[in-house]
Amino acid sequence: MARAAQTSTTAANTALRALRDVGAAAWFGGSLMGASGLNAAADAAGGPVERERVVAAGWARWTPIFRAAAAAHLLGSVGLLARRRSKADLVGLGLTTAAVGAVAGTAVMGSKEVPETTIHAVEWTVPALLAGVILSGLGRKG
């Protein structure tokens, strides 16, 4: 019986780690591509109207993927924190919360008259925070 419970716990932890890590990886990669590639492509597209059209289209296509990745990551993070209550999991969840705040902040700034340089700076904080999330989960078993 104890062995079956241990196997079940290990399987649950593996599933939660997969949700956390795959979600973080997808979110990290997309946010890095947006901050580095999409913005540069939009800058090369032409004038401000064309730039805004390209940026809006790119981020709109990324949004559903971001939502799924962030939800998977959060579900895995909260699940692991509830099961293990480790300091690394708590740090990772704190960094995740900051990244969610940065994403929300860029959305709000994008709807207002905020300089692009400010928005770009905040956009770069998202992959930086997520790199911290990914690093906080390394080397941890179970």
Rank of each mutant, 00 (worst) to 15 (best):
residue 62 W to G: 08
residue 51 R to Y: 10
residue 98 A to H: 06
residue 75 L to Y: 08
residue 19 L to G: 03
residue 16 L to N: 09
residue 70 A to H: 02
residue 137 G to C: 05
residue 93 L to V: 12
residue 79 G to S: 11
residue 68 A to T: 08
residue 116 E to A: 15
residue 94 G to V: 00
residue 26 A to H: 03
residue 86 S to I: 04
residue 99 A to G: 05
residue 49 V to D: 15
residue 106 T to H: 09
residue 48 P to I: 13
residue 34 G to I: 01
residue 16 L to S: 11
residue 80 L to I: 01
residue 13 N to K: 07
residue 87 K to C: 12
residue 46 G to M: 03
residue 110 G to P: 02
residue 90 L to S: 11
residue 45 A to G: 06
residue 126 V to Y: 02
residue 19 L to I: 04
residue 128 A to L: 15
residue 98 A to N: 07
residue 64 P to H: 10
residue 102 A to G: 07
residue 105 G to K: 05
residue 29 G to N: 00
residue 65 I to R: 07
residue 27 W to T: 00
residue 81 L to N: 03
residue 39 N to F: 01
residue 101 G to F: 11
residue 46 G to D: 04
residue 12 A to V: 12
residue 41 A to W: 07
residue 55 V to P: 00
residue 74 L to M: 10
residue 107 A to D: 10
residue 78 V to P: 02
residue 142 G to S: 15
residue 139 G to L: 07
residue 91 V to C: 02
residue 81 L to A: 10
residue 19 L to V: 06
residue 67 R to L: 15
residue 58 G to L: 06
residue 21 D to I: 12
residue 34 G to D: 03
residue 49 V to I: 15
residue 39 N to V: 04
residue 108 V to C: 02
residue 55 V to C: 00
residue 24 A to C: 11
residue 78 V to I: 14
residue 135 L to Q: 12
residue 105 G to Q: 11
residue 116 E to S: 11
residue 88 A to I: 00
residue 101 G to K: 11
residue 131 A to Q: 06
residue 40 A to E: 02
residue 32 L to G: 06
residue 98 A to I: 09
residue 122 V to P: 06
residue 102 A to P: 04
residue 42 A to P: 01
residue 19 L to M: 12
residue 46 G to I: 07
residue 121 A to R: 15
residue 59 W to L: 04
residue 106 T to A: 08
residue 11 A to E: 11
residue 91 V to A: 13
residue 70 A to I: 03
residue 103 V to D: 01
residue 103 V to A: 10
residue 70 A to F: 11
residue 120 H to V: 09
residue 4 A to E: 10
residue 87 K to P: 05
residue 32 L to V: 08
residue 42 A to W: 04
residue 70 A to W: 04
residue 139 G to Y: 05
residue 122 V to Q: 09
residue 112 K to D: 06
residue 123 E to F: 05
residue 9 T to C: 07
residue 61 R to N: 14
residue 31 S to K: 06
residue 96 T to Q: 09
residue 92 G to D: 08
residue 119 I to G: 03
residue 13 N to E: 14
residue 27 W to N: 02
residue 93 L to A: 04
residue 140 R to S: 13
residue 141 K to H: 13
residue 119 I to H: 07
residue 12 A to N: 14
residue 43 D to F: 12
residue 17 R to G: 12
residue 123 E to H: 13
residue 52 E to M: 14
residue 1 M to A: 15
residue 66 F to G: 13
residue 2 A to S: 14
residue 105 G to R: 05
residue 2 A to M: 11
residue 110 G to C: 05
residue 130 L to K: 01
residue 96 T to Y: 12
residue 97 T to C: 08
residue 4 A to N: 08
residue 46 G to Y: 03
residue 16 L to P: 02
residue 118 T to A: 13
residue 71 A to V: 13
residue 8 S to F: 12
residue 25 A to S: 12
residue 79 G to K: 06
residue 65 I to F: 05
residue 101 G to E: 09
residue 63 T to Y: 09
residue 114 V to D: 01
residue 49 V to C: 08
residue 93 L to G: 03
residue 1 M to R: 13
residue 76 G to C: 03
residue 82 A to I: 14
residue 133 V to F: 00
residue 129 L to H: 02
residue 16 L to C: 09
residue 108 V to K: 14
residue 92 G to S: 15
residue 127 P to R: 09
residue 13 N to M: 05
residue 93 L to R: 09
residue 103 V to H: 00
residue 45 A to W: 00
residue 18 A to F: 13
residue 70 A to K: 07
residue 133 V to Y: 04
residue 9 T to L: 15
residue 56 A to M: 11
residue 127 P to S: 09
residue 114 V to C: 00
residue 86 S to F: 01
residue 119 I to V: 13
residue 28 F to G: 03
residue 30 G to W: 05
